[in-house]
Design a protein around this nucleic acid. Structure first.
Lengths: 178, 178
DNA sequence: AAATATGTAAAATGATCGTTTTACATGCGC
DNA sequence: GCGCATGTAAAACGATCATTTTACATATTT
């Protein structure tokens, strides 16, 4: 049924935008239904609950975000982040924000956040290994922190945050290569 | 009136804890009143509205947080952050979380967040200047990003995030000194 | 002793929350 | 053409939201 896919896709897209722009708790089901152009009955048939919806949104966002991070250098990693912010806006990390809003006591949100961050760290680990020719967990964690810091600092510092993070990462990589 | 100060202090303390642990939107006024042990009438006489309350909480937290950051080396800066997390818990930055929850359209929250981040950056600028003997805006921004990154990555990586941030900061400082 | 300030307890306000239900329309497979 | 799946519109659910109000108690001030 092609309508299923259409409805679900439209719903997840609408929900991702609303949750990102106004927060999870502050976004009511009526705004989600009218935003997606569906009735509340249809919403609940498709997704079950608000918790299931936000979990689906986060897992879909993880896929999309990770796809945008298929790069092979730390420089390109921060380029990719800059590109993401240019098209999606910079409001911090939706995973951490949603996890914070739910106080950490919604299992599906906690798990989606943990999975996403685990994937992000191992992706960074691969990129670091490709750059310096060996695995370096400490360096990977440092780049992760620059990435996380740029993600959040960009909300109030703008593009300069990413530039600074990229240059700092370059220095750390250069130091590890020598 | 000593009761005024007591009530306001107790209310702000309770509110800070509840907002931090469960989020701003998800925390209802009844939990705030029963947590602070006051009636809703007294709460509104003292603080006016939920918006005014969260603004007061953020401004008070800024004072307390900045007081804990009175250090004179980058190493001690990350020690201070580690100490803060040890006693207060690590759930990311309350200013950014609250700003995100309110979608950026509550002026008092946006302003409190902006003021706090401005103060944080200039404090880091001073510490960097004390370390290398001159002002270096680029280096200060890089340390800010490590600080921001450690703040958020600690929520899912634990103490290792702060250690990695501290070592990365040390390398950048050493590089700037040479 | 009267007046003022400051508190509590509890009900009422009207709106909105997430979710379910009732009633009805439409299109597709058998 | 009957039945089933899938949709809409709209009402109802009971709970909870932030805020105000009503009624009353208790100190301190004058």
């Amino acid at each position: 049924m092609s309508t299923d896919i259409d409805i679900r896709t439209r719903l997840l897209g609408t929900a991702e935008q609303l949750f990102d722009r106004h927060g999870f708790t502050a976004t009511g089901m009526d705004r989600l239904t009218s935003g997606a152009g569906i009735s509340s009955r249809t919403l609940y048939k498709h997704i079950g609950s608000k918790t299931r919806l936000v979990a689906a949104v986060l897992n879909e966002r993880d896929r999309r975000f990770m796809r945008s991070l298929q790069v092979d250098s730390v420089d390109a990693l921060f380029d990719a982040l800059e590109g993401w912010f240019a098209t999606e806006g910079a409001r911090g990390c939706l995973f951490l924000r949603t996890w914070g809003e739910t106080g950490g006591d919604v299992a599906e949100v906690t798990e989606a956040m943990a999975r996403h961050k685990q994937r992000l760290l191992s992706r960074i680990g691969e990129i670091v290994a490709a750059e310096i020719g060996r695995h370096d967990d400490e360096l990977a964690e440092q780049i992760l922190i620059l990435f996380e810091g740029a993600t959040h600092a960009t909300t109030y510092r703008g593009e300069t945050a990413i530039s600074a993070a990229r240059r700092a990462a370059g220095l750390l990589i250069a130091g590890a290569r020598a």
